[in-house]
């Protein structure tokens, strides 16, 4: 995701979410270099879905945009209240990132909401999409 202009944002999110996998934490399901097509969820996320996550904080301490860092994981557990535990398929190469959420709830992005509720929202990776199709490599086409 390169920018948040409404039009580009909409196009990328709804029609053109092509993603290229880097890293090995989803092996053997998704390997390095595989390309997948993802889209927003039409139903509630369930255990076993492969999801795309976005970093909760817009910038890291040196000002590099975190928002452009997307992760791919599998839902391991539904904790209720739109919270999910996620994990990689490859236990040797996967770090725990804690509980993720579907809702956008954190004080850094919405300070107003934080103030009104007087409640500290934890930083959570947000589930933004579901992986539907692996379209690359050509011979390994697969729906998830």
């Amino acid at each position: 995701m390169t920018n948040f202009e409404p039009l580009n944002f909409a196009i990328w999110n709804f029609t053109d979410m092509r993603l290229k996998i880097t890293g090995h934490s989803m092996e053997p399901t998704l390997r390095q270099g595989d390309r997948v097509w993802a889209s927003f969820f039409l139903r509630k996320p369930r255990k076993g879905d492969i999801v795309i996550l976005r970093h909760p904080h817009p910038l890291d301490e040196l000002g590099t945009p975190h928002r452009e860092t997307l992760l791919v994981k599998r839902i391991a557990k539904d904790l209720g209240d739109e919270r999910y535990e996620v994990e990689g398929d490859n236990p040797n190469d996967s770090l725990n990132i804690g509980i993720t959420s579907r809702k956008e709830r954190n004080k850094f992005v919405f300070p107003l909401r934080y103030k009104i509720n007087k409640f500290v929202f934890p930083l959570r990776y947000k589930i933004i999409a579901k992986v539907h199709l692996r379209y690359w490599p050509k011979s390994d086409r697969r729906w998830f």
Binding site: M1, K20, G23, S25, E27, Q32, L70
Partner: peptide, 11 residues
């Protein structure tokens, strides 16, 4: 296509 990371930090 956009890069998506199959790891959380450089492991």
């Amino acid at each position: 296509p956009t890069i998506v990371y199959a790891h959380c930090d450089i492991p």
